[in-house]
Write a protein that binds this DNA or RNA. Sequence first.
DNA 1: AGTAAAAATGACAACGCTGTCAATTGGCAA
DNA 2: TTGCCAATTGACAGCGTTGTCATTTTTACT
Lengths: 356, 356
Amino acid sequence: MRYAGTISKRNNNNMKVTINDVARLAGVSMKTVSRVMNNEPSVRKKTSDKVMAAVKELNYKPNLAARSLAGTKSFAIGLVYSNPNAYYVIDMQNGILSRCKEEGYELLIHPCSSTDENVLDEIQTMIERSRLSGLVLTPPLSEREDVIELLDSMNINYVRILSGREPTEQEGKSNAIFVNDHDAAYQITEHLISLGHKHIAFITGEEEHKSTLERLAGYKAALSDHNISLDESLIFPGKYSFESGVEGAKALMAKNSKVTAIFACNDEIAAGALFASRLMDIKIPEQLSITGFEDSPFSKQTWPKLTTAHQSNQDIATQAAKLLFANSRPTKIKEEKMAVCFTPELVVRDSTGHIA
Amino acid sequence: MRYAGTISKRNNNNMKVTINDVARLAGVSMKTVSRVMNNEPSVRKKTSDKVMAAVKELNYKPNLAARSLAGTKSFAIGLVYSNPNAYYVIDMQNGILSRCKEEGYELLIHPCSSTDENVLDEIQTMIERSRLSGLVLTPPLSEREDVIELLDSMNINYVRILSGREPTEQEGKSNAIFVNDHDAAYQITEHLISLGHKHIAFITGEEEHKSTLERLAGYKAALSDHNISLDESLIFPGKYSFESGVEGAKALMAKNSKVTAIFACNDEIAAGALFASRLMDIKIPEQLSITGFEDSPFSKQTWPKLTTAHQSNQDIATQAAKLLFANSRPTKIKEEKMAVCFTPELVVRDSTGHIA
DNA sequence: AGTAAAAATGACAACGCTGTCAATTGGCAA
DNA sequence: TTGCCAATTGACAGCGTTGTCATTTTTACT
């Protein structure tokens, strides 16, 4: 695991190499070097080659601070989130970073509490301090009108990750990635129905998250389409957490002996419900079917493995970043906003089964 | 969830506010404003108040790019990791960010593959491009000599997170946070021994991680101190992954009917071992005790809950950041490097029990 | 009050790059 | 070959701060 060779050739000079050094070595002006570094057109191939050779020889790396100070664009985008789900966040980061790497951008991450009154100030400060050239917003922050108003007033480029099938009027005004929670939830519910379940309980996430509403709506739509009457008492208002799953399952099973399936609003809740089932000595899936949502890594690690809806957060993030960069390109002619839609797909594993 | 009031007072002017504007309003020179913004001494209280008032009135935010271009220090540090454990990474990020917020720094994250030949180049590029003022390194990257050589040659400030009780000679040369995996592993093993276990198996993590070696050493030391002879066949060489736990437990239980406890090198492996036990219809903890390491969130979500060693990665990260900032202070007189040590603590839950 | 030393403040260049616009070059038709 | 236009290149200012050093103000003495 040693790359001594690489090291030695690495630091002939420990001094900073500036664009000026490159220019002199290549025998051109600084501006021309700048042109080459920025892939600007109208640079003769021969010139560009000379410059690139000098860049390599000196191992020149443009200084980002100087670049963003002098130029119009900065070289950093931000990711703002208030989501406690580690897997979700990591996927988002990695997805965005993969695009950033290609574009030569840095990513600033900004976790925050959505209930904190200072979020707006924090976001604004972050953008201004670092002169961010764009922002990716995840739910539930992406759903807040005040955040959007702020960003619009700051005239900054951003992409929202939202839940829904198509933009609402308000949502249509900005670039966004849509996750079609509704239809995925519909599929899950239909899957349960096809297994013979009629008394399907539902444990919700926070109702501030639109995904909760969408998933609930998909569930209701499926029930309705299959002529199963909705029993509001089977809907347990929870949070996107393991504990909520435990609690919800306990409550539902205690008062409703007739429940044969639980639709958990995400995998964590499902894992909690699974845990509670063990406590209550209820066999999964023989006595009770449980479904999750998101297909996070641990949905394959629970016992039994979770039936869930697969959603690639990393792909979603990559798309979001793509949209962001596409929109900040010179070709700003297209004023219409773009939207991309993902629909999570049903993955049947071992936590669901035919009704006994 | 609307803060209209805040918004309106937010953007009287959509223009950039520069230090010059503040200086004019406060009736002082730009340099004085700069002094105030940087908490430099020798600014009269009265002057400083005037400046602060102007800063507030204009809602001035110093431009980071300009600051780092003009000044000697930049305002960003980096976190480099090649760790697939989402919980670990998130904790690290949050711990470091909490300090960054206080210091007014930004954090650039750089996930990378430790097997990738380009890591050195990537790290160097990242540092040079962004003129990073410091770096936090997590295992296993923090253990690589070539990485350290590079950083030293670049003369950049960094903190390593390492596994061990005290610095080796090589390690002593740099700032570091030590996690005493050895003693924690000793405790876990002793706990198992106290429950009557004599045939304790061990599933390792990657041997490139020093933590694997340290944990293994602690395990061996405990066995030896309690006069239990080491049985090499009970050591399964695995990886820090769920799958490895499944595989390891299967292999160990198949060939060693006498094994009554498994020491898993981390929680993920333990969760895998738990899963495998279910497959093999082995009751935990009645027939087999299993221990984890790290106390990640899901160690409370498995069935049964995991006995493990609690290690607060967020605290570790915060300490690392503190060390980093402390060392980059003007008071650079102290050339001795600093080391802080954490010892994870045994947490007994439900996956371990008296031998039948 | 008068002085020297210390403290506080300010003027200005420089950080490394890009935008603007002017100057130069090359290509091509006449 | 000459001339003209487009393509290519360069000179220079300026981005918003801080470092350096000079200048002014205050403080502590005699």
